[in-house]
Structures are given as C-alpha cells and as structure tokens.
Computed example of a mutant assay.
Amino acid sequence: MSGTNTGVPSLVDAPLAERVPVSEYAACPVTGLLHRLGDKWSLVTLVLLGGRPHRFNELHQRIEGVSQRMLTRTLRALESDGLVRRTVHPTVPPSVEYALTSPGQALLGPLSQVADWAVEHRTDARPTL
C-alpha cells in the first residue's frame, strides 16, 4: 500500500494477470494461509491458543468433535507453518504445551477483523458445511 493510497487494501492494490497461472496461485502465501485457516479445526485452535498456552488434552477437551488424530494433525500443520510452538517440558511423564508463536499472535488481529466483518455482514441464509 503506498502512502497516497492508504484507503486501498494491499490485496486489491496488486493487479492480477488476465489469466492467473495455477503455479502462481499455488505459490501465493495468501492461498496457503487461507487453505490452512479454512480447514475444520485450525481457526478454533488458534483462537484458543491466543488466550493462553494449552496442553494437548486441554485442547482436545475444549474442542468438541475433534478426534485426537485430527487435533494432532492440525497442531503439526500449524507448527510447520510457524504459527504454533510445541514445547516439551522435562517432567515425568513429559508434559507438552502448545502456544502461539509471534507470527501466530500477530495473526489474531487480522483474524479478528475478518470475524467482525463476517458477523456484521452475515445473513440468515448461511451456507451449509
């Protein structure tokens, strides 16, 4: 966003080609982020970890309907993306804690803005999932 166009979001400031190559779409960091956030459990996991660090079983108990396998996959993906940090504490038995990284914390503000927009513009005719 340039200094003279402060009201123009950077997303629409960059023109796209007439035909967007699939390789360019796949390589776009925005595409990757939206795929991650669009999966079933990532968003709620990020929001919970935004409040405070959690142990695995705490997260599993707080997210109704998620299997242990899916929560494990979600946490590993978020960790791989650099949004979540996994810390193993040297206790007997070992204790594992999950927390947001700095980029994960920084993502909460924009996510809140998207959530506010969704609430403000929602209609009664919601798409079914």
Rank of each mutant, 00 (worst) to 15 (best):
A118M: 11
T45S: 09
E120N: 10
L37N: 03
P90V: 14
L75H: 05
I63T: 12
V96A: 14
V20P: 11
L33M: 00
E120W: 15
L71C: 05
E24N: 01
P15M: 07
S23N: 07
L34K: 00
L78Q: 04
V96P: 01
H54R: 03
A14P: 02
M1N: 00
W41R: 00
T91D: 03
S67C: 09
R126E: 05
A118C: 13
S80N: 12
E58A: 02
A77K: 11
Y98W: 06
G104C: 05
V114R: 15
Q113P: 08
N5G: 12
L107C: 05
L108V: 12
P110N: 12
S42V: 09
L46T: 05
I63E: 04
G3R: 09
L111I: 12
G82M: 04
L33E: 11
Q113S: 15
T87R: 11
V47L: 06
A115S: 15
A14K: 03
E64Q: 05
T91C: 11
M70S: 05
T101E: 10
G82N: 11
A115R: 12
P21D: 01
Q68Y: 10
G3F: 01
L34A: 02
L129W: 08
L71K: 02
F56I: 02
H121L: 10
P110I: 06
R76F: 01
S112F: 15
V22Y: 05
P103K: 11
K40C: 08
L111C: 15
E18G: 03
R76L: 08
R19T: 06
A118Q: 14
P93E: 14
L75E: 02
A77W: 15
G50N: 03
A14W: 07
D81K: 07
L46V: 06
V84C: 14
K40Q: 09
L75T: 10
L33I: 08
V30H: 02
S102W: 07
G7E: 03
H121M: 14
W117M: 15
L71N: 04
R122W: 09
L48F: 12
L108I: 09
G7A: 00
T123I: 11
P15W: 12
A99V: 04
V66H: 01
G50Q: 02
H35M: 05
R36H: 03
L111F: 08
K40Y: 02
L83V: 05
L83R: 06
A125N: 15
L108S: 10
H89S: 15
E97A: 13
G3D: 11
E58R: 00
V22N: 07
V22I: 02
Y98I: 00
P15R: 15
